[in-house]
Each structure stands twice: as C-alpha cells, then as structure tokens.
Nucleic acid binder design. Structure first.
Length: 462
RNA sequence: GUCCCCAUCGUCUAGUGGCCCAGGACGCCGGCCUCUCACGCCGGUAACGGGGGUUCAAAUCCCCCUGGGGACGCCA
C-alpha cells in the first residue's frame, strides 16, 4: 500500500472560505491520522482571476489554522509542460482528438439537446473527422459512448453514471492551456495522491476524471465527497450570507482552535463528543464518521465553542490577541496589565472582539471614561453619591488595595450604615466602570488600582 | 429540462432491524448561585417529510412521492 497522500487544491481567486477550510481540514486530518502526506497545490490556471495576493491570503489562513503541509505549495501555472505531455500521449493513443467547432456551434448543439429534453452535450461531430491541429482547435477526450462509470465514494457509497450522460469534453483549450479536469488528473497522478476528499459539488466531475485515468491507463485514487455547507436559507454559502473568509472570523475575534473544532463537527461526528483538540481529532478522525447530508453554518455554536476555548486559553496568549482587537486610541498597552484583566473577562467573552470592548473601561484614562447615561441617571443619585463619597474617604486610607481588604472594608461600611451591599454595589460599579455590567466589584477595583478607583469616584461625585 | 446526491429537534448530530413512545450539544425558556453581567449547576421545550412494502419487529432495508442541494463551460 502506498503512503496515504491527500491534497488541498484551492483556486486563488478568492480568500480561503469556510467550506474550503473544512475540506482542507478533512484532508489534513486524514493524512495525519494515517501517517501520510498532505500537499498544498494552488490551482491558478485561470490567469484572469488568480492573483498572488489571494495565494498569500490562503496560505496565511492555513497557517493560522495550523494546517501544515508536507509538500508544496505547487502551482499549476508552473506545470504546463507536464500537462501537455500527458495530452500528447492521449492523442497518440487515439483517446483524444482535435476539434474545430466554434463555441457558437457547440452552444447550438447543447441547445438542441436541451430542447429534446436531454442533457446539454457536445455532439461529437469531430470525433472521427481527423481534424488537424490548427489555431482554432481544441483537444477533446474521446469518451466511451456506452457503458457506465462507477466509483465507490468513500463517504456516499457507490455512485453510478451512464456514460451517455457525458460528452467529449475539452482537455486543451484553443490557447493551448489544459482544462481543469485534465490538470487535476495529471497532478494527482504525478503527486501520488491516494485519497481525494472534496466538496459535493465535484461528484459530477469525478466520472469525467475517471475517464481520463482510464484513457491514461492509470488506476484512479479513492474519492470521497463531503456535503456542502449551506447558508441559513439552505442555499449554497455565498457572500450575501455575510463573512465567509476564515480570516474574517479571525478579525471577529475567533480563536483558530474554536474554528477548527466547529468546522470539523460540520459533517463529522464522534459519538456524542463536542470538544476536540487537534490531537484528539488526529486520533479519532475517520471517513466512516463523515455524514452525507448538507449542513448549515450556524454562528451561535461557533461562539459557544469560542467562549469555551477562551476560558481554556492561557492568559499571555490571549493578551497578545486581545491587543490586536483593541481600539487604536487605547494603544499602546502594557502586556502585563492585560494579563491582569483577562482572567476577569475570560468567562464573559464570546469573542476576543467582545473582550476588547469589555476591556475598554480598564484601559481608558480616568478623564475620558465613557459613562452609560441611563446607568448614571438611575444609580448616581443624590442619595447614592453620599455613600460614594464616604466610601471614597474610606478607600483613601487603605494600604493594601486587594480584593480581600476591599471586601472587608466595604463589609464594615455597610454594617455601620446598615444598608445592603446591593444598595451600594450598582452605584459603585457605575462610578468605576461607567456601566451596569462588569466583572466582580472587588476584583475590578483591585486590578484598576487605588488611584484610578479614587479618581473615578471623585469625578462622579462632582 | 436532464443527470447525480441528500432527507432525525430551529441548528450540528448519535442511531447501522429489537437496548429508541429516539440520545447528546448549541440556541431558546425556567430555576439555583449572586454586588451587576457572565461562568457554573439543575430542569424544560423540540425531530425520525409523506405513502406503500419487507419483517414477529423499522428512524434503521426496498419502492414511489415530496422537499432540498449540486452539476450540466474552451471556470475551478
């Protein structure tokens, strides 16, 4: 048995999107699970739409997700001779032929077929005409007219297709470049690909590719088609569904491990487990547990996973991520100060973006702290301000300004004044944080420090 | 239109003929905890698309219908 070899073959005509990332993940996992190789191949034969920036962006996204490849990136644009020599051999074997029908003519054939209620196809007009190569000729595959093409899909089971459904599709364009189906087959052969895991939208290409393998006299690899990811409206995921690019999720404050965990559970499961580390996945991944029906991308579960991983992540890593999400006006910030506030924010943040918003009152300087007007109106009344100024005086005298000491000091105060802590808690919170929701008061005050707490109390007292 | 694929709670899914009047997770709702908001914990809501078979027995196997998705390029 050959070494298991899988590949991810994106086209650099756009960013790495959710669906592509999941496909890459499945291929990566399968290779890792089987001690095989994972290859990155950039399918940039469409010169018009492919750009180096997109290639860069895709590679960055894979790096971010931690999907490392053993070979590549390879670029199809640099492998033209390879393709042409394969096409030559097809011509030699009589499995390919030149065709000089114009695109208009072919379109007319398709239209005619459609009218008859058949699948639109090229008629095969030049199949046996012995057309010689010329400036306007393409090369087509001489596909079988009868019989069936069958393959055992690794996730869907056997798939049959009557060869009559297929036509003599183009292998080489008029301009001499190879088409997708030809290039893919050549590369997969040359690179020793053993398993191809790709989106459902490729099932119809598979029989065509198998025909090329046959014409070439090469055994095809194993194919597996994973179901599509649909938008909430059950339509193929597209731009109007909002963010699709993996890196956009990074910008929204998602952690790569959350992304991976979410993506893998779209179409794959292991008993009723939900949380998987990369190591878990490599151990547990298998094709048998891939589902076969399409699924819908649902952000709420992603957010839940993300908040889970935020709680798990270590503080110093979160600190540097958090810094990236902070408003420019708050920068620069001291890493060690961020590390103090993060433990308070961890259980409260769904995304790092959210955490950045929650961190604002810690970072803002005392004079420019923003207050929620409704909160001020409700809690900073004449009555509560009397309490606050008394409290300010008490705090002023404190030496150790830590959670424990604060709790004790304020505990004594409410006892003396015979009020419930509830009565002073919200006014205090609003005065210190500007908002009605925040981490616990004592821990917040400790992190903020005596000076800043007093500044804020004095400011609201005016 | 033709072909291919798919079909369990709103969503992700478990289930491979009896253990299922269907389990888990997210969400949602309620409660507990509580200085607010969260976290956490406890509880609840909610699904086998329809119809025929096969079988002692079907969410599970077969057929039809319906619904959904995808593909039909000298794009990938």
């Amino acid at each position: 048995m050959n070494t298991v070899t899988t590949r991810f073959a994106p086209s650099p005509t756009g960013y790495l999107h959710i669906g592509g990332a999941r496909t890459a993940l499945f291929n990566w996992l399968f290779a890792r699970k089987n001690d095989g190789h994972f290859i990155l191949r950039v399918e940039d034969t469409d010169q018009q739409r492919s750009t180096p920036e997109m290639t860069r962006a895709i590679i960055d996204a894979m790096d971010w997700l931690g999907l490392d490849y053993d070979r590549g990136p390879f670029f199809q644009s640099q492998r033209k001779e390879e393709y042409l020599s394969y096409i030559d051999s097809l011509i030699e074997k009589g499995s390919g032929y030149y065709c000089n029908c114009s695109p208009d003519e072919v379109e007319a054939m398709r239209e005619a077929a459609r009218k008859k209620g058949l699948k639109p196809k090229y008629s095969g007009k030049c199949r046996d005409m012995g057309v010689k190569p010329g400036p306007d000729t393409v090369i087509r595959l001489k596909a079988p007219l009868t019989g069936q093409t069958v393959f055992i899909d690794q996730v869907k089971g056997p798939i049959y297709l009557d060869n009559q459904e297929l036509d003599d599709f183009v292998l080489q364009r008029k301009d001499g470049t190879p088409t997708y189906n030809l290039a893919v087959v050549v590369d997969d052969i040359e690179m020793g690909i053993t398993h191809i895991l790709r989106g459902d939208d490729h099932v119809n290409n598979t029989p065509k590719q198998i025909l090329i393998y046959k014409a070439l006299g090469v055994d095809p690899p194993l194919f597996g088609h994973v179901p599509m990811i649909l938008g909430p409206d059950r339509k193929k995921l597209s731009k109007r569904h909002g963010a699709l690019s993996v890196m956009a999720y990074r910008e929204m404050g998602f952690l790569p491990e959350a992304m991976l965990n979410y993506l893998v559970r779209l179409g794959w499961s292991f008993k009723d487990e939900e949380i998987f580390s990369k190591e878990d996945l490599i151990k547990k991944f298998s094709l048998e547990n891939l589902g076969s029906s399409a699924c819908i991308f649902d952000t709420s579960k992603l957010i839940w996973l993300n908040s889970h991983y935020i709680k798990e992540a270590d503080v110093s890593r979160l600190a540097s991520i958090l810094a990236e999400h902070l408003d420019q006006s708050l920068l620069p910030v001291d890493q060690s100060y961020l590390e103090k506030i993060i433990p308070l924010l961890k259980p409260r943040a769904g995304t790092m973006k959210e955490m950045a918003e929650m961190a604002e009152f810690f970072l803002a300087d005392d004079q420019s702290l923003v207050y929620d007007q409704k909160a001020v109106d409700k809690f900073l009344t004449r009555e509560t301000e009397a309490y606050l100024s008394e409290i300010a005086m008490l705090l002023e005298k404190m030496d150790a300004f830590d959670q424990k000491a604060l709790e004790e000091e304020l505990g004594n105060y409410i006892k003396k004044r015979e009020v419930k802590f509830k009565v002073i808690a919200q006014p205090l919170r609003v005065a210190i944080t500007g908002k009605t929701a925040s981490p616990g008061l004592f821990e917040t005050m400790e992190v903020l420090g005596k000076e800043r707490v007093l500044n804020r109390l004095k400011k609201t007292a005016q």
